[in-house]
Amino acid sequence: MKNFKGKVLFLDRSDINTDEIIPAKYLTESSKEALKPFLLEDLELAGFNPRTDIKGKAVIVTRANFGCGSSREHAPWALEVNGINVVLAENFARIFRQNMYNCGMMAIELPKEQIDMLFKKYSGKDCEIEVDLAKSIITVAAGSDKDQLQVKIADFDKCLVEAGGWVEYADKNY
């Protein structure tokens, strides 16, 4: 399984699309690693600088409809090669969400109130999140602040994360 623990990148906006996550001009790359410098290059978010803000982060916390638009799996790949294997949001675009689990990564939905709490309490701090897949618990911590959130991860999604992705699972079962 991939790593699901680390520093958090807060992206305080809804409807972040896959063109923003990785622009189409980089879709001619044929290796995932080549996408690394271009993650979130075109993100429209005041104060965000992709050159300095992504490094060392392992988890993204964002608002609603993350990953809308194009079906490009280059979006999760660009996250993966930057060490980010988990995104927490109110909800995800269907294709992006499926692509994450198909790659053995996690796109976890939290109620709006919990996302609001995460932004309010932890954004701007040196925050770390860990996902315990077996218990479906997310642990958020920054300094002396700590929260544990019970989340819903569907059995099929868990299975994909454990198998390392959909190709491995499908190959065994179909």
Partner: peptide, 19 residues
């Protein structure tokens, strides 16, 4: 008819199924 990522496509090509 639905758009999918490259992994779903890969399994579609190999197995003729999708979730």
């Amino acid at each position: 008819a639905a758009g999918v990522g490259s992994t779903d496509l890969e399994v579609g090509i190999l197995k003729g199924v999708c979730t």
